[in-house]
């Protein structure tokens, strides 16, 4: 998996590829001011975690809910959720 990108265009092409999108865009105007914000792959680690997703290989046994609670504790975060239970 790629973790560092040349620019926003390479990042978006990569996301669209993962999402199964054709990545065809209309450009209405171009931005010249890049003095604000930060590229997603350059966030400092605390921010990276705050805005993070983990693709977990859930072990059989514990519920999805239990696993999410363990990760919350492990990373000392205030909120952790899971996308789609994996019980039945």
């Amino acid at each position: 998996m790629k973790t560092v990108f040349k620019d926003q265009f390479e990042f978006i092409r990569y996301l669209d590829m993962l999402g199964g999108r054709s990545s065809e865009y209309y450009v209405k105007r171009e931005e010249k001011d890049f003095s604000y914000g930060i590229f997603p792959w350059e966030r400092e680690i605390k921010e990276h975690l705050r805005l993070g997703i983990i693709n977990l290989d859930k072990p059989p046994g514990p519920t999805s809910h239990e696993v999410a609670a363990w990760i919350k504790k492990m990373l000392a975060l205030s909120k952790v959720g899971h996308a789609g239970t994996l019980e039945y």
Binding site: L49, R50, L51, G52, I53, I54, N55, L56, D57, K58, P59, P60, S64, V67, A68, I71, L75, L77, S78, K79, V80, G81, H82, A83, G84, L86, E87, Y88
Partner: peptide, 16 residues
């Protein structure tokens, strides 16, 4: 049951 389970941290919970 095992396998792929996306976990959303902190503010990512908003897009679950």
């Amino acid at each position: 049951m095992s396998g792929v389970l996306p976990i959303a941290l902190e503010d990512s919970v908003k897009i679950i």
